[in-house]
Structures are given as structure tokens and as C-alpha cells.
Design a protein around this nucleic acid. Sequence first.
DNA 1: TAATACATACGTTCATGTATGTATGTAAAT
DNA 2: ATTTACATACATACATGAACGTATGTATTA
Lengths: 207, 207
Amino acid sequence: MARKTKEEAQETRNRILDAAEQVFQRQGVSRTSLADIADEASVTRGAIYWHFRNKADLYDAMIKRVLDPEEARCNAGIVTDSDPLGFIRGLAVDFLQQLAQDPRYQRVFEIAWHKCEYVDEMAVIRDSHLECGRRFIALLEDAMQRAREAGQLPSSACPRQAAVGLIALLDGLVVNWTLEPALFPLAEYAPGLVDAYLLGLRASGGH
Amino acid sequence: MARKTKEEAQETRNRILDAAEQVFQRQGVSRTSLADIADEASVTRGAIYWHFRNKADLYDAMIKRVLDPEEARCNAGIVTDSDPLGFIRGLAVDFLQQLAQDPRYQRVFEIAWHKCEYVDEMAVIRDSHLECGRRFIALLEDAMQRAREAGQLPSSACPRQAAVGLIALLDGLVVNWTLEPALFPLAEYAPGLVDAYLLGLRASGGH
DNA sequence: TAATACATACGTTCATGTATGTATGTAAAT
DNA sequence: ATTTACATACATACATGAACGTATGTATTA
């Protein structure tokens, strides 16, 4: 075949990423060959090697297609300063609702949590996600701090511990629900569980 | 070499399982060949194929060596009927403390959560673990129910939602801490976070 | 002596990366 | 406005290596 226009090339790239989502979800990252992805995308391995250096690079791009907008949205709301705890609650609940609705979110988070081993080149990718997670913890910790200063949390509360607990609750819900969506109704349970945890923080001081 | 006595054979089997823990943790399950494990255990692949059918069977045995005693311990305490919420708290905190202390727990849970892709033959194994998780949820749900009847939780509380939230919190802590132990002090945070969540349930009714 | 507990040897499959082929779009030269 | 030249966007072909399962050998032990 032959050269395509720039837009067509981008379409090809996206088709490859779409295909990767499907096949990774079915077979896991390790057991998926680039030939499998090429078949699913109706291209050859040549096309994949043109757009990506290797499987790890492709995987990274697939994750970033979802995470980058998510983090942008996360930082966009940071200006809200009057009600820190409400800001935190909104962030958490919105994310879980988004996951409950968006099939691409479901695929990508299922892959990231259950269909990928983070070793070797993948470990580098995991570290970049870990960096992302650390920034999120810092953001939450900062918001918890402000909530304490605003009197929304008792002065005895530990902002970091409170932040860690919330992340754990969120990740735990994501991990379990992506593993088996029939286990519980995520969208229905999410607000109540987040509220319960935050309410517990106000009552106990987080330690 | 040659035939050994039964006890020696069991030692060999355990050496192989120990080696598997080490290599799986380093390289991930997929990227680990049986030759790698054989080298680490100072045996040949022949020994592994004698004791296990294949890598999935070996992995399953490795997990069960930790999970079976854990579940036994879990069911042993079930008789406690006077203080359901205290029983739940004990179960949760003990488990987290155990993880914080026991290197084998740390290895195996890190492998199960972060170094293994649950597809194909592995999916069967995951289902058996999922079964185990379901039993744990049922156990918690039942305890939550009894807690409600004992007046430890408001009558508006949903036992299943409460159980799911606790599991999520626990799994979230395990997942994050095994991913990066330096992120937070597990043993120190565990009691406070579990208490905060349970306290939140009492206050909010779990919904 | 027969089953056990391994070690060794073999054949097959399969994924990877690269090298090379090829046809088209694109920009500059005429 | 053509032609020319080159970069682009893939497809195809090839060489390498690694892991798997099995088959077979061998020395004990019961």
C-alpha cells in the first residue's frame, strides 16, 4: 500500500489503540502479540511499528489517552477553595460515576489493574502512573489540610492519613468492580460509601 | 540424581514454591519461565514438572499456601456473636497487621495484585479467588446484618453496601501499599482508617 | 523389582525486531 | 502547471531466540 494523508494516519493510529484495548482486555498484555493487535485493527505489524516503538510504548499511549484528560479535569477544579471537603467528595464521586458509565474507562482500568504485569519496561510506565498517583495524593492531602483549617475536619485529623484512606477506598472500589461488575452496583453505592468515609473522618479525626 | 525420601521430596516442592515467589516477584508471572524458577531452586525443569502440571498449577499452589491458612483463621473466629462490629474490626486490622509483618504475605499479595495477568488458565484461578472473596463478602455482610440487629449500626444501613465498602478499603490499602510500601506506614494507619470507616457507617447508615 | 523422584535431551511453536520493498502525498524546482 | 525528489505510511520477509511439553534416561527407595 501507500502513503496516506495526515488525518488518515491519525485514524490508523487510533484504530490501533482501539484494537489494543480490545485484545489486551481479552488476552492480557503479555499474551498479546503485536500481530494479534494488527489483525484486530486490520493492519499489519508494520503499521504498529511505524506509530509505536514497541508494545510498551503502545500500552503507554493507550493509558495516556484516558489518564491525561482525567488528570486535566482533576486539576481544573482545584480553584474551589470555599468548601474543600465538598470539592474532594465531588472529585471522588464524579470519577466513580464516570467509570460506571464509560466503557473505555472500564476497559482501560481493567487492563491496568488486572491484565498487565508491571515489570521491566512496564515498570517504567508504572512509575509514571505512580507519579500521577502521588500527585493525586498530594492534591487530596492539601485539600484535607484546608478542610481542617476550615473547620470541616477536627484539628486532630491527619491530612495524609485521610488522603491515603480515600485513595484506598476509591482504588479498592475500582479494583473490585472491574474484576467483577456484577459484585455490586458501583454508581449506586459510590456516593454513600464516599460520604460514609468522609463522615467517619469528621467523627474520628482520621486516627 | 535419583529418588529421594518422601520428606525430601516435600522439601524440594517447598523449595520450588519459595523460588517461584522470588522470581515471580522480580519478573512477573508471564515473563518467568519454568527454567528461571528451576535455576532459583537449584533443580531442573524436570523436578517442577514432576510436582506440578504447569506454571498455572504451580502458581495456584503458591497462592493457596498463603490463602488457605488465612481463610481458616478467618472462619475460626466466626463464633464471636456478642460484638459483631468488634469482630469485623479485629478481622480487618489483624489482616493488615499480618501483611505489614509477614514477608511472604507481602510477596504473594504483590504478585497476585501486580505481577500476574488473569487470563486463560489464570482466569480459572482468579475465579477460585473470586469465590474466596465472595465468601468473605458474605461473611462480612452477615456480620454487618447482625451488627444492625444488635443496634451497632442504624437500621437504615445496608449490610451489603457496608461490607463492599470495607472490602474496598482493605483491598485498596493492600494494592497501594504493595505497590509502594514507602507511600504510607500501613501498620500505623490501618487501625485508624478502619475505625474511621466503621464510625462513618454508624453515623451515616451506609447510604 | 517396581514405582518414585528427579535430570537430560529433543522437537515444535511462536513472538520479536529489523531489514527491505513499495506506493503515495508533498514540496520545491523548472 | 508539470516534473522531480524525497519523506511518509505502511506491507512483507527474514533471522533469531526462547519457552513449552514430552520423551526418555537413571539412580534410589520401599
